[in-house]
Design a binder for these strands. Structure first.
Lengths: 114, 114
DNA sequence: ACTTCATTTCGTTATATGGCGAAATATACA
DNA sequence: TGTATATTTCGCCATATAACGAAATGAAGT
């Protein structure tokens, strides 16, 4: 039961839902997500590691950046089921739509180190 | 987004998951659930009112008892989707199976006021 | 090796959550 | 009306969680 609870807990936070919905657009690095959410980098990092623990997302290092992405073909079927649900949800949410638009536009080379 | 977070929060607790899985067997009153979970009645009541707030469950008064039941045909499609997922999950969980067996056996007339 | 900068880890703080017992409420029955 | 009992509400406590800033880590380029 532990796994199920961890999954639902991971999804019980507005900022983590925003992150997952952004990642539906494309993989993003920490500083891009940080910019969109307007939180401290350390806070975002903690959210991301919590999401990674559940296998809802995965990460790939690319130079000094770490790209986070939705775990499309997750081992655990429950992860996939929840990501599928989430993909159908919140299509009209103002914040989510704005986040997703920004996710499509942000450029880490301009954004970061500024 | 508020609704979605509330739903996931409601599902983020072991005892609330146990309650929902018990209610898959049949409607139960507070004292029956209390007996199976081994918690204080006030604690169980709080869990139930939280679940009711999300429309995952509903209640019907029957004399001095209040019967709680899964919200089979919930207005909100998301509620139904989550209940459907949960119905597929945890088929082999020891605690859940034990709870469900007890749910089938308990008799409020013997159980309560004892 | 040194610097830069993205990311993570750590320590702290404020709030949220889950638990209990006691008291309040509501319903049946004498 | 009064009693019994199921449930809820309230106040309290311990723990969990989300946020921050500062310090540590790791990879790129000088």
């Amino acid at each position: 039961m532990r796994t199920e609870i961890k999954l639902f807990k991971a999804l019980s936070d507005t900022n983590r839902i925003r992150i997952l919905k952004m990642l539906e657009v494309r993989p993003l690095c920490v500083c891009e997500i940080t910019e969109i959410l307007g939180l401290a980098p350390s806070t975002v990092s903690k959210h991301l590691s919590l999401l990674r623990d559940t296998e809802l997302i995965g990460d790939i290092k690319e130079g000094r950046w770490v790209n986070y992405h939705l775990q499309a073909g997750a081992d655990d079927e429950r992860v996939q089921q929840l990501l599928n649900l989430l993909a159908e949800w919140l299509p009209e949410d103002k914040i989510i739509k704005s986040d997703q638009q920004k996710a499509g536009e942000v450029d880490r080379n301009i954004l970061c180190a500024s």
